[in-house]
Design a protein around this nucleic acid. Structure first.
Lengths: 332, 332
DNA sequence: ATGAAAGCGCTAACAC
DNA sequence: GTGTTAGCGCTTTCAT
């Protein structure tokens, strides 16, 4: 077996309580004793067992993170923000992918609470009823990162997606466009249905432009689908002149569709989208976007979670981080 | 306090051992008793405490994963493969980023072993001496995923980078090129110095082409640096005619440099690179690449780890997965 | 400043 | 088939 606190105590001729004190930096230890203990720890190669510590102290210094899919840059970037702050406060992260399946999300919540995480960060594109219920009786603090909570029930870090969408579409309108197609991921997602779409419609209405259902193109959230969607859009009886796209991957699909058809952005079509990755800077023309501070959303979420776990006062637990429009070459 | 196994036992008029048995699916329980216990569990809302279980059983059903940076698509994709197999075998994952700093890697190893993970997957671009030493005395199985171990000491899942590089360069040579630039991330990384570079050189030598140091361009591993590197390459006294690039992000940097200078791929230059993400399919022209099965590397690594953790026999613990050349439009 | 002792919630012999 | 009991390795009162 490996060396325990008890072995150290015996070796140093002190009680395990004293060893525990020096390991935990408790000041109530005479310097000479501390040195002696430290010495034995070193010599025996003692490493505290975090599981035993967790059982005794009821703190695991571990937080759970549930997200749809780490292989999507949106979440990977958020995760990096979360992880850096977690490191700073000395928490580990148990990361799991839900693929946005509510049953799976529920399973994971139960699993992670069972593992006694000290807190949880949850990401998804909607909060289902079962999930809401389970999170309501969570034994530890929960914060939603980059995730829309219609009920405003949980602590949440986001940007104002609706307003951002509004501004993007407004920009297109200011450039003289009236036939603006909205290309979006599944409308089953609250973020699309309740925010991006609403912002799009509000901008049109404020400019007295009719909202046309056939100008709202819903696709599965991947590059190939967006690329094929272009063919559908090409057939539209009334031709659009501009695109507002829900994210950069879809936007590049549309862009490539346009370009492979021998047409040009921004001459034949202007386009603006949300920015979640390097893509908008990498393609040609570079895309004008609404930059989403993903890393910051993750970092702020984790910071908030640390406060909640420490039972510190928090001024505001529903925060909207600023976004900005990144002017590049897909809009004149 | 929350409900414990003891509460359930009392409520069901059985011993905690029996409750433990039904919770763990031990068949030595009379069906009627099982039903009664299950009923109380349901009624009291009992959830097993995984920390206590871990302390008693010495198994945490948690594995540690150390990687340089989850926000890089290379690692995110690997991680997805790891995570899916982990889910299948009911392990959780503690994920942490090392930024390739050996001190940090060491810290994380110690931290994760302290948390009593049942196994560990390690990724990095080199295995430093301290890290090697710590992993050698690991209390649990370790496997390296997508990570070069010069000493062949640890279980490892990889592709044959050297051979892949060889084939890529050979392809360029077959197309008549003699002045082929190798653009690479830092040579401090074993994978670049010991594999990709060697494959490049071997291909040249086998074709009796001189290896020129000024044709090996080392850059920091990001898009902007590759983009600027183009300007440096442009100044080369002898002009290259083709590029072999260490990864797709760097390749796109070079590609954009070329195109923004008004030149064309594949007409003015041909280019081939390793493929780690969607990028090669997304840019125009689409890039000819060596496809690396990242997801599979992750999945196979995790599968191997499960066997090791179960002390099953493993036929081979150093595996090279197949790679293939993906013909697209950056090579004629 | 230090020690003794009682748990934390569970598993795993072992006994019946 | 079920109960008893001794830990797992630590933290945390409470004494001293």
């Amino acid at each position: 077996m490996s060396v325990t606190i008890y072995d150290v105590a015996r070796e140093a001729n002190v009680s395990m309580a004293t060893v525990s004190r020096v390991v935990n930096g408790n000041p109530n230890v005479k310097p000479s004793t501390r040195r002696k203990v430290l010495d034995c720890i070193e010599r025996l190669g003692y490493r505290p067992n975090a599981v035993a510590r967790g059982l005794a102290s009821k703190k695991t210094t571990t937080v759970g993170v549930i997200m749809p899919d780490i292989s999507k840059s949106f979440y990977a970037e958020l995760q990096r923000g979360i992880a850096d702050i977690a490191t700073m406060y000395e928490y580990n992260i148990i990361l799991s992918n839900s693929d946005e399946r509510p049953e799976r999300e529920l399973e994971l919540l139960i699993d992670l609470f069972g593992k006694q995480v000290d807190g949880l960060i949850f990401m998804s594109d909607s909060v289902s009823e079962e999930v809401r219920e389970e999170m309501s009786k969570a034994p530890v603090p929960v914060v939603l990162a980059g995730t829309v909570d219609g009920e405003q029930q949980f602590s949440t870090i986001n940007i104002d997606y609706e307003q951002a969408a509004y501004e993007a579409v407004q920009k297109l309108i200011a450039n003289g466009h009236e036939r603006i197609v909205f290309v979006t991921g599944p409308m089953t997602r609250d973020i699309n249905r309740l925010h991006k779409k609403i912002g799009y419609e509000r901008a049109l209405r404020d400019a007295s432009i009719e909202v046309r259902e056939d100008f709202i193109i819903e696709v599965q959230d991947n590059y190939d689908n967006a690329y094929s969607a272009w063919k559908e859009i090409e057939q539209l009886p009334e031709k659009p002149t501009a695109f507002f796209v829900g994210n950069d991957l879809l936007a590049v699909g549309i862009l490539n569709g346009i370009r492979d058809a021998g047409l040009s952005v921004p001459n034949d079509y202007e386009l603006i989208c949300f920015e979640h990755s390097l893509l908008p800077r990498i393609v040609r023309p570079q895309l004008t976007t609404i930059a989403v501070p993903l890393y910051d959303i993750g970092a702020v979420s984790m910071r908030l979670l640390t406060k909640l776990m420490n039972e510190e006062e928090v001024a505001e637990d529903k925060v909207l981080l600023p976004h900005r429009i990144e002017e590049r070459d897909s809009v004149k």
